[in-house]
Simulated scan of single mutants.
Amino acid sequence: MHANRKQVGDTKLRRHEKYEHLIAAAKQLEALPTAVAHPCDETSLRGAVEAAEAGLIVPILIGPQDKIASVAKEHGLKIDGYEIIDVPHSHAAADKAVEIVRAGKAELLMKGSLHSDELLSAVTAHDTGLRTGRRISHVFVMDVPTHAQTLFVTDAAVNIAPDLMEKRDIVQNAIDLFVGLGLGTPKVAILSAVETVTTAIPSTIDAAALCKMADRGQITGGELDGPLAFDNAISPEAARIKGITSPVAGQAQILVVPNLEAGNMLAKNLTFISNADAAGIVLGARVPIILTSRADNVRTRMASCAVATLFAHSRRASAPIRA
């Protein structure tokens, strides 16, 4: 039996195979210059250094130079040869990282040991940020050991209570990522608590509208169905019992949650109950943003870098993001 798998009843545990495939694919491509904002703790600096050593990124380290050097020395990390831009604090690091991207000196942006809000504030600044016509949104690319496919969960980190048009961008961003990673045409489930449309649950109405928008070409590149409850989205047996027949039910690859609270709970349940890893990326800006958590392990940070690198390469030959 494969070293990364073991049988438990009828469930195969696939430990990190999906991430291994993504990282291996990214290693075949040119490493991209990456503005790393405030890598001032071991995990964030190690993630950037190990991603560089793996050939995924070329880091530009932005933050207090003495602090970065101290962390590197304390934890045995070799940062010789990497460009370091000395700025006094995390806020300045976020602003400088965005400035470097705007100047075309970096093709990726990576969060270090600062708060996500601090980095995204610099990204979304009207005059100096990295906005496009598309709403910025977050995707968790989840490697769930008990599930055969990589699951994309969106949006569980940026948009708190998105309206219909914001959900349209959230869906399109996730589809574009899935396609850009070379995974084919995604099956997209618009999640709610039930499978029928009812005014008592507004997310079911949004789900139905999003599916119709896809029918009319307002969302492209994926197959949509919704509303679907979580079980009917990922379990063929649950979908069969409920009598739901569609190309998506039971086979969903992208899970679109109704709001941030639901998405956060879903992603953390998968992480802490199913031992999933959750690579994180923000889309809809001028460049992919590697948005990791301070609690992420190095493997997850590596996977986040791999996803961003693969997507950035796919965008090189494509048209800019449209509204």
Rank of each mutant, 00 (worst) to 15 (best):
V171H: 06
T34Q: 04
T309N: 14
L310G: 13
I290M: 06
A92F: 04
A262F: 00
S304L: 02
I289W: 09
N264M: 02
D66M: 02
T300A: 13
A207I: 05
E74R: 12
R216F: 01
A239I: 02
R134D: 06
G76H: 11
R5F: 11
D155V: 01
S318Y: 00
L120A: 11
A193L: 10
L108A: 08
G217P: 02
V287M: 11
V197G: 00
D176Q: 12
E17Y: 07
I321R: 11
Q218Y: 04
K242I: 03
K67C: 04
D169E: 02
V171S: 06
V87D: 12
N269I: 00
L270N: 03
V298S: 11
V144I: 13
L255D: 10
V257R: 07
F230S: 08
V144D: 13
R315K: 13
S235M: 04
K12P: 09
V197R: 00
K96H: 13
A122F: 11
P64N: 14
L210D: 01
I85R: 15
V257C: 07
H91F: 06
I241M: 10
A125H: 15
S274M: 11
V49L: 03
P33K: 10
S318D: 10
H313V: 07
R294G: 07
E20D: 15
A189V: 00
P202I: 03
V256W: 03
A94W: 03
L56N: 13
A239P: 05
G284V: 01
Q7H: 05
I273Q: 09
V197S: 03
I290R: 06
H138F: 14
M265W: 00
I79V: 14
H16T: 04
A262Q: 02
S121P: 00
F272L: 09
L114N: 02
I219W: 07
I79S: 14
I84P: 05
V141R: 07
H89F: 06
T128R: 14
H313G: 11
D176R: 08
S318L: 11
P162I: 00
G280F: 01
G9M: 10
D117S: 15
D66Y: 00
I100F: 10
L77K: 14
V248L: 08
V49I: 14
H89M: 05
D215E: 09
Q65D: 15
S44F: 02
K6L: 15
H313A: 06
E118W: 00
R286I: 12
A69M: 11
V141D: 01
D176E: 15
I290W: 03
V123F: 13
D225V: 00
F152A: 07
R135F: 00
P186C: 07
P247V: 03
G9A: 13
I289N: 01
E166A: 10
V36Q: 03
Q28N: 09
D41Q: 08
Q65H: 11
N159G: 08
V139I: 11
H2N: 15
M165S: 13
I273C: 09
E83D: 10
L266A: 08
A317P: 00
G250C: 09
Y82H: 14
A317R: 12
